[in-house]
């Protein structure tokens, strides 16, 4: 296995210092081949095992194979099942392994106000450093994929780490290790893209002419990619965004607004100071005092 050990930081939330970046690290990626997934949830179980997570409560049945019903602070990856009818009326059972996509341009990191609560390593993994997390939930608003979940237990936010701890010591993520069909592959982004190309070719030869790779450019590409048999309509896979990008509202709030607001407030204060220099204080003169007392006295007599 290639050397993915670099845990050098490329980006760090709410920090202005430039992280060290004279070294080029190999970009890694996890490739999820939806067409090979049988929905056995081995990855889901492996994720819980490796990360030592347990749902507090047993959920209730909601009419689908999704179990639990949604991602949570203790469920970092989740199989989402969709029964989809193609235009010819054939039923297809679409199974997508949901979880953090490890965006090239992470909306969570952009939104986070706490220095170093979210980092992006040189290899592409986006990780929450929980002891720095203050539980504000800004990352939840920044995420284009609706992934981070706020824990009621400790008011911190959790999501898939892409097993940064395993990757750092040359292991593949727990989910990839556990998958019995090879639907989850892990390696360099370059290799994974190439491998996806082969898979897509194969799918096309079997009649899925819209097969393709999901590596959305709107978020700078992702370090978790999908091979989809219907890459022309990602949203049929349990609402995978067709063209994800960081919300414009979040971009405005975390982008232009910060310097403009600070400059605006500083400007207001400076205007006050300049006014003081030019016009000076508005003093009450002795004549005012005399006239004022006059009014008061007239009433008193």
């Amino acid at each position: 296995m290639a050397d993915f050990q670099s845990l050098d930081i490329r980006r760090r939330s709410a920090s202005t210092e430039v992280p060290p970046n004279i070294r080029e690290a190999t970009q890694i990626a996890k490739l999820i081949d939806v067409s090979r997934c049988i929905g056995c949830k081995a990855c889901q179980a492996a994720c819980m095992e490796w990360n030592d997570l347990r749902e507090e409560e047993v959920g209730s049945f909601n009419g689908s194979y999704d179990n639990p019903a949604d991602l949570s602070p203790a469920t970092w990856t989740l199989m989402r099942f969709t029964e989809w009818e193609d235009p010819q009326g054939n039923l297809e059972w679409l199974i997508r392994k949901d979880g953090c996509m490890h965006c090239g341009d992470p909306g969570c990191l952009k939104a986070c106000p706490s220095p170093g609560a979210i980092v992006q390593y040189q290899n592409g993994i986006v990780d929450f450093i929980s002891e720095n997390c203050i539980g504000c939930g800004y990352c939840i608003k920044g995420c284009p994929f609706n992934i981070p979940r706020l824990s009621q237990a400790d008011q911190k936010v959790y999501k898939c780490t892409l097993c940064s701890d395993r990757v750092a010591v040359g292991q593949e993520p727990a989910c990839a290790k556990a998958c019995p069909t090879g639907a989850i592959a892990f390696g360099t982004k370059h290799d994974m893209t190439e491998w996806a190309g082969e898979r897509i070719e194969d799918l096309k030869s079997r009649g899925f002419d819209q097969a393709g790779l999901y590596d959305p450019p709107g978020v700078g590409g992702t370090h978790v990619m999908y091979v989809l048999h219907h890459a022309d309509k990602p949203s049929i896979y349990a609402g995978l965004p067709n063209d994800p990008h960081i919300s414009r509202l979040v971009q405005a709030w975390k982008g232009v607004m910060k310097p403009i607001a600070m400059a605006g407030l500083a400007f207001t204060a400076v205007v006050g100071f300049v006014h003081w220099m030019v016009a000076g204080p508005n003093e009450v003169h002795p004549e005012d005092e005399a006239k004022g007392r006059d009014v008061l006295d007239r009433q008193d007599t």
């Binding site: 979040v250 709030w253 607004m257 204080p281």
Partner: peptide, 30 residues
């Protein structure tokens, strides 16, 4: 929430501006 977040920060900046005016006026007018 995204809308609320932006509205909250815009309104906060505006109210701090109003506050600066309020405090300055109180100091300026002896």
């Amino acid at each position: 929430k995204r809308i609320a977040q932006l509205a909250h920060s815009l309104a906060a900046v505006a109210i701090i501006g109003v506050w600066i005016v309020h405090v300055y006026a109180a100091l300026w007018v002896r």
